[in-house]
């Protein structure tokens, strides 16, 4: 009888312990564009999914998301709503959400907020900020493009020259300059984040002008990739997300934003009691930025070695890339 009671108590204790271990962490993410954009928003969303998978699925990490929040007050409402529903971590994945995070975070001191891309935690102990040094991968892509172009003409397409798109392209230009000063680079900016058709026309214009290597940033550059694919013999350098799937024959490499390590660290820190207060910068050095070579593209070994050396130099600081 006694032993039975003991086992019962032991069982209950084990159950409680299991429950304590299994209480999943609840994460909500708010993104400005669609989770299917093959760029900025998808980079975060797929990182969260992979973290969820690594941790053991739904039972360990509950993930909710709201995408297409290009309007800031709507996003602010979403941030506050998720925070008030008792989510452990609320990720505001857009630099335009800064003021909203600052305001809501003060009202929910027990919730961890992460936002980016920016470096400002507003001096709040429950806010993490994160950003990506897009110029570093841009430099590597530019280096590769300079080494691979035969026509010595390179084209850049983008929506508006601001934010990530600007820092990436500035890095790209520095990479080209570093490798070969004789190359001409022309830029086109379409003024729209969604006008895929115009982006495609822009890429065709670069090609018609003799460019044989192209790059670009934002969700609408998929139009450029499509145009390059149609022409054939054109090389593409991707950023933000692994873009090889769109044109396996012509993507040389993509700068990939890998948020998983950062996310895992935020989760671990929160479990250890630290709710925020620091800033993450994805760089080549810390592995947050990765250059993903397309295995389907036969990159000459010498150039790959040189590119890897460049990556190492940027990582150890001997090459300084200006944002």
């Amino acid at each position: 009888m006694k032993s039975r009671r003991l086992t019962a108590i032991a069982l209950i204790a084990v159950l409680f312990a299991a429950a304590a271990v299994a209480a999943p962490i609840r994460i909500a993410v708010i993104m400005p564009s669609a989770t299917t954009d093959l760029a900025f928003s998808q980079s975060m969303y797929s990182a969260l999914l992979s973290v969820q998978k690594d941790m053991g699925g739904e039972s360990a990490l509950v993930l909710k998301h709201t995408d297409n929040m290009f309007n800031v007050p709507d996003a602010a409402a979403a941030i506050r709503d998720y925070a008030s529903q008792g989510f452990d971590v609320v990720i505001a994945h857009g630099s335009q959400y800064g003021s909203s995070v600052q305001e809501v975070a003060k009202d929910f001191p027990k919730v961890t907020f992460a936002w980016g891309t920016d470096v400002n935690t507003f001096g709040l102990s429950n806010v993490y900020a994160y950003t990506a040094a897009a110029e570093q991968g841009g430099f590597v892509n530019g280096f590769l493009a300079a080494k691979l172009t035969k026509s010595k003409k390179v084209g850049v397409t983008g929506p508006v020259k601001v934010g990530d798109a600007k820092t990436y392209v500035d890095g790209f230009l520095q990479g080209i300059q570093y490798a070969d000063k004789s190359i001409t680079v022309s830029e086109t900016w379409t003024g729209s984040f969604s006008d895929v058709a115009l982006m495609s026309a822009a890429a065709k214009t670069h090609i018609a002008n003799g460019a044989d290597s192209l790059t670009g940033s934002s969700q609408s550059v998929v139009g450029s990739i499509g145009a390059a694919k149609d022409k054939g013999g054109i090389l593409w350098f991707g950023t933000q997300f692994e873009q090889t799937s769109l044109a396996p024959a012509l993507v040389v490499a993509s700068q990939v934003y890998d948020w998983t390590a950062m996310l895992k660290e935020i989760i671990a820190k929160r479990k250890a009691g630290s709710l925020g207060g620091s800033t993450y910068v994805l760089t080549l050095a810390n592995g947050g930025l990765k250059i993903a070579y397309n295995p389907g593209y036969a990159l000459p070994a010498a150039i790959k070695t040189a590119a890897d050396a460049t990556i190492k130099s940027i990582a150890n600081g001997s090459i300084k890339v200006q944002p």
Binding site: V196, A197, L198, G223
Partner: peptide, 18 residues
């Protein structure tokens, strides 16, 4: 003509107000 001839893909708000 946009999705299977001009750009050969689909994306949210592909027309962008065309």
């Amino acid at each position: 003509s946009l999705s299977i001839s001009l750009t050969n893909l689909f994306q949210d708000n592909l027309t962008a107000g065309m």
